[in-house]
């Protein structure tokens, strides 16, 4: 079917979004057309505003509306503790637990030598700089439990070795609510490594 040109253009743009195929793009386009016109205006304004106003926090490299993100501005956060994550959405996942009161550092990716993603493609230098400034006593590495995530954590841990900071990595354990005998051997091996005294 041949769409009128504006719809065809909208579909083309929507299909560039992650996880949106031709079917979903069509559904979204029809939805936009069925809603009152101010819906489309509000949506497009929100897209434009987000793109224009959001940038990297100059300290932690998370998403921010101003120079510093709300967490970096918050005096009640523990400035001596840094939790290192790969992406802003990982920061949100830790934040949503409500248990961590320290600050963050967002690397904006993981190391992946086979894809040519090296240390200079990540925000590793500014992390070392933050540690060098001296107010930090613990760095918690919360990268993904994947080969790339582990490589990133190992690399950063090695860089931080000369510094007087405690470097820890999140415990890798068994998924809550699962049976032990269903877990794979890597998960069990890592849960053993991360066992604690009771």
């Amino acid at each position: 079917m041949l769409y009128p040109r504006p719809i065809a253009r909208l579909l083309e743009e929507l299909e560039k979004l992650p996880g949106i195929g031709p079917k979903s793009a069509q559904r979204i386009a029809y939805h936009i057309l069925r809603e009152p016109p101010n819906f489309a205006e509000k949506l497009s304004q929100a897209v434009v505003d987000t793109r224009a106003k959001i940038r990297d926090c100059s300290r932690c490299f998370s998403l921010s509306e101003g120079e510093l993100c709300p967490i970096c501005q918050d005096d009640r956060r523990d400035r001596a503790s840094l939790c290192v994550v790969a992406e802003p959405r990982d920061l949100m996942a830790v934040e949503n637990t409500g248990t961590y009161r320290g600050c963050y550092h967002v690397l904006q990716g993981h190391l992946s030598p086979i894809d040519g993603i090296g240390p200079d493609d990540l925000r590793i230098d500014p992390l070392i700089q933050r540690v060098r400034e001296g107010a930090i006593s613990e760095v918690i590495l919360a990268t993904n439990p994947t080969v790339e995530g582990d490589a990133t954590a190992l690399y950063i841990a090695e860089l931080l070795r000369p510094f007087p900071v405690r470097v820890t990595q999140l415990a890798m354990g068994l998924p809550v609510g699962g049976d032990l005998d269903y877990a794979d051997q890597v998960t069990i091996a890592r849960a053993f490594e991360g066992r604690r005294l009771m």
Binding site: V147, D150, A151, L154, Y155, E158, D184, Q185, V186, A189
Partner: peptide
């Protein structure tokens, strides 16, 4: 089914 995850290899950068 896992045969070998080469766990030790992945612990050494």
């Amino acid at each position: 089914t896992l045969e070998d995850p080469f766990f030790r290899l992945k612990q050494d950068l």
